[in-house]
């Protein structure tokens, strides 16, 4: 029974991470790159309009970072709950 509740707690923590990471995923691509592109385009990042930069560069960088954060978080979580191998 204890292993069951352990598994539940692990799953809950996992879902929390997913929710946070996927919100960022949505915000940089669909938010900054698409829905708020026109608004962001009044700002500049070097020679880039900001909305355009998010759509063609920034979102991709964030995607890569997100996956590596996820890997790091999950490895720690695996250890905490004894699922590491």
């Amino acid at each position: 029974m204890e292993s069951r509740s352990n598994a539940r707690a692990y799953w809950k923590a996992n879902l929390k991470y997913l929710l946070i990471l996927l919100s960022v995923w949505f915000a940089v691509s669909f938010g900054a790159g698409i829905l708020f592109k026109d608004f962001l385009n009044q700002f500049h990042l070097g020679g880039f309009k900001l909305g355009f930069w998010f759509a063609q560069q920034g979102s991709i960088y964030v995607f890569v970072i997100l996956i590596f954060i996820y890997i790091h978080l999950m490895n720690k979580l695996d250890k905490k709950y004894g699922y590491s191998e």
Binding site: G33, Q56, S59, I60
Partner: peptide
């Protein structure tokens, strides 16, 4: 294409 074909990996 840029976002669609990379964001899918997340």
């Amino acid at each position: 294409y840029l976002m669609g074909w990379t964001g899918g990996y997340v």
